[in-house]
Amino acid sequence: MATEQDHESKALMALRKAVAKALERKRRLGQYAVVWRDGQMVRLAPEQIGSAEAYESGGSAPPSAVREPGPDDEDPK
């Protein structure tokens, strides 16, 4: 029987693979991508997106570093 941690790991790998595929498609089509880095939205030009392997392996950021801003977060403006 698979543990909860196994399920989480499989789900995370599936999400990383989907993101890598979407970013690779955007790069090939010459489209920009918007990602969340260091607490801010960042617009990446197609040449800045990088390889799908880097995103699929989790090299872009640990899951704890990627989150949406919540209502309790300070407004940076």
Rank of each mutant, 00 (worst) to 15 (best):
M1P: 12
H7S: 13
H7Y: 08
E8W: 13
E8Q: 15
S9T: 14
K10E: 14
L12R: 10
M13I: 09
A14F: 04
A14I: 02
L15Q: 12
R16W: 04
R16M: 08
A18R: 13
A18G: 04
V19K: 09
V19E: 07
V19Q: 09
A20H: 00
K21W: 02
K21S: 12
K21M: 09
K21R: 12
A22H: 04
L23Y: 00
L23P: 02
E24I: 05
E24D: 15
R25Y: 13
K26S: 15
R27G: 07
R28E: 15
G30P: 00
G30H: 04
Q31P: 04
Q31E: 15
V34P: 07
V35E: 06
W36S: 11
R37K: 15
D38Q: 10
R43P: 03
L44G: 00
L44C: 00
L44T: 06
A45C: 04
E47L: 04
E47F: 06
Q48T: 00
I49L: 06
I49R: 00
S51D: 12
S51Y: 06
E53Y: 05
A54H: 09
A54E: 03
Y55F: 07
Y55M: 00
Y55V: 14
E56Q: 13
S57P: 05
S57C: 07
S57H: 10
G58P: 02
G58C: 04
G58I: 05
S60Y: 14
S60R: 10
A61K: 01
A61C: 07
A61T: 03
A61E: 04
P62N: 12
P62H: 08
P63N: 04
P63I: 03
P63R: 03
S64C: 07
S64T: 12
S64L: 10
A65W: 01
V66G: 01
R67Y: 10
P69S: 00
P71W: 06
D72R: 12
D72L: 15
D72C: 11
D72G: 11
D73E: 12
E74K: 08
E74N: 09
D75S: 00
K77G: 11
K77N: 09
K77W: 13
